[in-house]
């Protein structure tokens, strides 16, 4: 099968290979990992007719410059980073044919935070514990995938071209600068004072710059909240919203550590985790309590 070598000319802010991650290794303290926005991930692979669990490139806020040495098919989904191919603007949410030596270039996301690039074929890259996903907090381990740097490359065994597909424009998620995230009550919900709960659901929070694949810190602290009692550490999962001792909410995301000692106020519902993954620093977010059904 022909093989295209994909070279990262410039990595952008944080570009990594991601797939479904490493669910099943958490008893060893290994993060779940995997794509932050699953919906955009699945659509990207569908558009190039890849198996659903094929890895993709995930870019953050500022995209990469990527060179393909052979022709192949790709699809771009998620946040709009004004993609161009050899300096000609190209569309997202559609199958694109790339020629040998083409250069795919991304700019900055105005709305949304993460952009995905699927490449049709079988990816040949570093794999650890069954997954291609880079782990953001584990650098310098030769067996473990990490974020892509300038001049890094990997190859994809290209499948024969499939027919061009376009994802219906009316079904594409619109990202804004303002999000309402639906949550259900978490294990320590009942331990919070009703004033604190009202304060949490009444107010608009701002996504802090101190946010990454491990979690989103929110800038505003809960009013009149203090908790000096350290809870005995227990399991935490992506989507858990924990409250630090001085009242700062943190939404845990894909690369979260597996255990933590802060009270777990609520959990983001599955349907909204991908949305949350598209929030960027400075965006506004509110929480809406829903019934788990």
């Amino acid at each position: 099968m022909p093989k295209t070598i994909v070279t990262i000319k410039e990595p952008g802010l944080y570009t990594s290979i991601q797939d479904n991650g490493r669910t099943g290794h958490q008893h060893q303290g290994i993060p779940f990992g995997g794509v932050m926005d699953k919906e955009s991930y699945h659509i990207a692979n569908q558009l190039v007719d890849n198996p659903i669990d094929t890895p993709v490139l995930e870019m953050t806020l500022k995209g990469a410059i990527i060179e393909f040495d052979k022709s192949c098919q790709i699809a771009i989904t998620g946040a709009n980073m004004q993609p161009s191919l050899n300096n000609e603007p190209v569309g997202s949410y559609t199958t694109l044919n790339v020629q040998a030596k083409d250069i795919l270039r991304f700019g900055q996301a105005k709305q949304g935070c993460r952009t995905y690039v699927a490449i049709r074929g079988e990816w040949k890259a570093k794999k650890w514990l069954g997954s291609f996903s880079a782990i953001s907090q584990m650098k310098d381990h030769k067996n473990i995938p990490c974020a892509l740097q300038a001049a890094d490359s990997f190859s994809v065994e290209v499948f024969p071209f499939t027919e061009q597909r376009t994802y219906p424009i009316q079904k594409i998620s619109l990202f804004s600068n303002c999000y309402v995230i639906r949550v259900i009550s978490g294990p320590e919900f009942h331990l919070f004072h009703s004033d604190t709960l009202l304060n949490f659901f009444d107010r608009t929070f701002t996504v802090s710059t101190d946010s990454n694949r491990m979690g989103y810190r929110l800038e505003e602290k809960l009013e009149a909240y203090s908790n000096a009692v350290e809870k005995i550490s227990s399991g935490i999962i992506p989507g858990t919203v924990q409250i630090t001792h001085d009242g700062q909410p943190i939404i845990l995301m894909a690369d979260t550590q597996t255990t933590g000692g802060y009270p777990r106020l609520v959990n983001v519902i599955h349907e909204d985790i991908g949305f949350a993954a598209q929030m960027k620093p400075g965006d506004e977010v509110r929480f809406m309590l829903v019934n788990p059904e």
């Binding site: 958490q26 008893h27 399991g235 255990t259």
Partner: peptide, 13 residues
């Protein structure tokens, strides 16, 4: 799907 044993709790996927 996953298990996180801790001091006094077990989290199960």
């Amino acid at each position: 799907t996953f298990l996180i044993p801790a001091y006094q709790s077990l989290t199960l996927g």
